[in-house]
Amino acid sequence: MSAFGALAVAEDAPASADAVVAEAAVSDTIAVAPGAHSGDAIAQADATAAAAGPVITSGLSVAQAPFTGGTQVTVAGTGLDQVAQVSVGGTAASIVAAADDHVTFAVPATVDTGLGDVPVTFSDAAGAPADVELPTASFTEPSAAAAATASTAGVLASVASPEAAAAEASAAPVTAAAASADALTLTYTSDPGIDAQVGYVLAYWSSYNSGQYPVITGYDCANFASQSLIARGWTMDGAWYYDAATGAMSPTWTSSTAMRDWLNSRPDLATPLEDSQRMQVKVGDIAQFDWDSSGDRDHTAVVTRVERTENGTKVWVGGHTKDADYWDVDQALATGGGSVHYFSLS
C-alpha cells in the first residue's frame, strides 16, 4: 500500500484478480486529481460544506411568545455558527448563542396589535438566507387529551440550555405543511399581566377607583400608575406600598420623582429609556414627563398604545391628573414642553 492508498504491484509480476479489485475499490473511495494530494481533497470537501451555508433542521423550541419580547428560542441544524442575523416578523432579534448545531435568539418586542403568526428567518453575514429543511412526519389525529397536552407544552416550553433546547426542537415532529414553508413561524400572544394593567387604566382613567384607593387631588398621576402596577401583578414591599388600613403611602407610590429613583434602583423590574429609544417602548411601560426641564419628573402615565411606522414610533399614554386614556406623547410635548422619559418594565 502506498502513501496515497494505491496498491503497489511489481512491474514484472501480473496483478492478481483480488489485487485489481482492491485497487479499484480504493480508487473509488478516495478520488484524487492528478498531481493532487489526498489532504487537498479533504480540504476541498470541507470548503464545499462550509460554502453550503447554515441549514435549519428543527422547528422552534418555543412556538408562542408574549408580544413584550425577551423569550429565548433555539433551533437546531448544521453550520448555524454562520448565522449572523435573525428576523422575527421583519424585526431584528438578538442572537444569544450560536454554535455549529444550534442557535438561540431573544424574541424582539412588538406592538400589542401585532399578535398572531409571524415568519422567523435566519441569514449569514452576507445576507444569504439559511435553508430550512425540516423532516416531514406522517400525521395521525391525536386524542383530545394528547392534543391538550401538546398545546400546553408548546406554551410553557422554555430554554433550560442550548443543548437541551436544540435536542427538544430537533425531536419535535413536524408536519409536511411546515416542512414546505420558506420560514419558521412564531406566534405572538398577549401578556395577561399587561392586559390586566392596561385594562385597569382604561377602566378608571375617568371614573376613579375611589372605593379601593384614595385620590390625591392635583397630583394623582403616580398614585394611579402604582395602582395599575398592582393590577399587573406587582407586589408591594417596604420601599413601594399603600397601606389600606392606615392610608399610609410611600413617596415612591405617590411622587413621580421618587418613583423614578425607585425604578432606577430596580433593574430587575425596569430599564430606563430616553425618548431617542422610543422604538423599544411597549404597551404597559411607564412614561414620565419633565415639563420644565428641571431634572425632576412632573407627571407619570402608563403607555396604552404604540404604533411603529416608516416615520418612527408613536406612543399614547393614559393616566390621572391629566385624565386620559390615549394621550399622544408628541402632542403632550408640543403643548407642555420639556421632555419625556420611559421605563421599560420586565
Rank of each mutant, 00 (worst) to 15 (best):
T152G: 15
A334F: 12
R266P: 13
D12Y: 06
T91N: 01
W253H: 04
T187S: 04
A93K: 02
Y219A: 13
Q44K: 00
A52M: 10
T246R: 03
G116E: 05
W262C: 10
D323W: 15
D112Q: 05
T300N: 09
I286W: 13
A245H: 04
T136K: 14
V283Q: 06
V62N: 14
A93G: 01
D275M: 01
A245W: 03
T78I: 02
G312F: 01
V88A: 02
Q64F: 04
G70V: 11
V20L: 05
A50D: 14
P173D: 10
P129S: 11
V315M: 13
Q44F: 00
L229S: 10
D243Q: 07
E11L: 02
A84M: 04
A126N: 07
W291K: 05
G193W: 01
T149R: 05
W240I: 01
D298Q: 10
K282M: 04
G238S: 11
A92V: 02
K322V: 02
G35S: 08
Y342D: 07
S206Y: 05
A17R: 14
P14Q: 08
V88Y: 07
P54F: 14
H320K: 08
W291I: 05
V306T: 10
A145G: 06
A3K: 15
G116N: 03
T309M: 05
S255P: 04
V302C: 07
A17Y: 12
Q72L: 15
G338T: 12
I42P: 08
G295T: 01
A130W: 06
T304Q: 04
F343Q: 07
E310P: 00
H320G: 03
T235W: 12
M236D: 11
R260D: 04
S210A: 10
V75Y: 10
A126H: 01
P119Q: 11
G295M: 03
P251S: 01
F343A: 08
L7T: 13
T71G: 15
L156A: 07
V26H: 15
Q331Y: 15
V118W: 02
T321C: 06
A3C: 12
A17L: 13
A17N: 14
V103S: 08
M249D: 01
V26Y: 15
G59E: 08
Y213M: 12
L269E: 13
A178I: 07
S58P: 14
V96Y: 00
V88C: 00
D40F: 04
D298G: 09
V329S: 05
Y342C: 09
M236W: 11
W205Q: 09
G116H: 02
G90L: 02
V132Y: 14
M279A: 14
T335Y: 03
S226W: 03
L229D: 05
P142N: 03
D112W: 00
R232T: 10
V132Q: 11
A169W: 11
V306Q: 12
D112C: 04
T309S: 10
A270N: 04
W234P: 09
F224Q: 04
V107Q: 06
G154C: 07
G127P: 03
P119K: 13
A92E: 01
T149C: 09
L7N: 11
H341P: 04
W262T: 05
T71L: 09
F122K: 08
A332F: 03
T335P: 07
A98F: 00
A63W: 12
S265V: 10
A166G: 08
A196H: 10
V281K: 12
W262R: 09
Q85L: 07
A45I: 12
I95V: 00
D330F: 02
T48R: 13
G70W: 15
A157M: 13
A169Y: 08
